[in-house]
Design a protein around this nucleic acid. Structure first.
Lengths: 127, 127
DNA sequence: CCACTGGTACGAATTCTCTCGTACTACTTG
DNA sequence: CAAGTAGTACGAGAGAATTCGTACCAGTGG
């Protein structure tokens, strides 16, 4: 059946009990996530890299936009993170002044099984 | 819902021995296929539909562009099929006056395992 | 040879996307 | 309150995609 990394477990450990999570910003429900929108969002190397880094290095929980150390102006990052969120790839929550991101792992595995493994295995072109 | 289609076998039966296949049109080698280019090619519903139809209904072998019954002018179809070929998704061969298409199943399964299953399970938005 | 089929190439108009500067808001801390 | 942090919204310019008309070309079959 699954030839490769499909058996990997990308799930993030649940937040500590009693922790009050801010409501997520507007996003498509699990059943509304469109494959072509996901593909479009992942057609940009910067955005694949963001999702991949979130997948592979989010050991504790989610991360702010600046954590990624992307050398772009803030308004460009806003654009890319919003694109990812509106496509259904990431969830964004407002923690006080900052905004934190996490991959919608359960939703994506349920809807497009194997997709996250492809992203995790991705490597940038110029290496 | 989707019975996880990962175990499906998409491979096309090999051509009859002695059949002379025309050379494929220029395309990226298996190792050169870029995930972000594949994603970009699949961000268009028409193009996902083409690949999906090739996957699910190519029982014998490959098909011409007009076989898809797409209600677009010929020059638009040339554009979309070239996009798919240059991204590495389909192989195109010139059979006399017509051009035939097939999905690069072995190359894609080897490089991006699970991707074709996602495409096969795709459904257009207007349902 | 002529017409027909199944395409290509080119170019233009439109639309979409990316990038980024600027100005602004919200929250936290001193 | 003032300063700093983290981000948004708006808008403009550049570049890329999409759509499509038109002209054209290669085989195939009378």
């Amino acid at each position: 059946m699954s030839d490769t990394a499909l058996a990997r477990d990308f799930r993030i450990p649940p937040p500590p009990p009693g922790a009050e999570l801010p409501e997520p910003l507007p996003e498509p429900a699990r059943g509304e996530i469109r494959l072509e929108a996901v593909m479009a969002a992942l057609s940009d190397p910067l955005r694949i890299g963001v999702v991949r880094k979130l997948l592979l290095e989010s050991v504790d929980f989610d991360h702010t936009c600046t954590w990624f150390e992307l050398d772009r102006p803030k308004s460009s990052l806003t654009h890319h993170f919003r694109t990812l969120r509106e496509a259904g790839l990431i969830r964004q929550r407002q923690y006080g002044p900052s905004r934190r991101n996490q991959v919608r792992i359960d939703d994506l595995e349920a809807r497009f099984p194997g997709l996250l493994a492809l992203i995790a295995d991705w490597a940038p072109a110029s290496e």
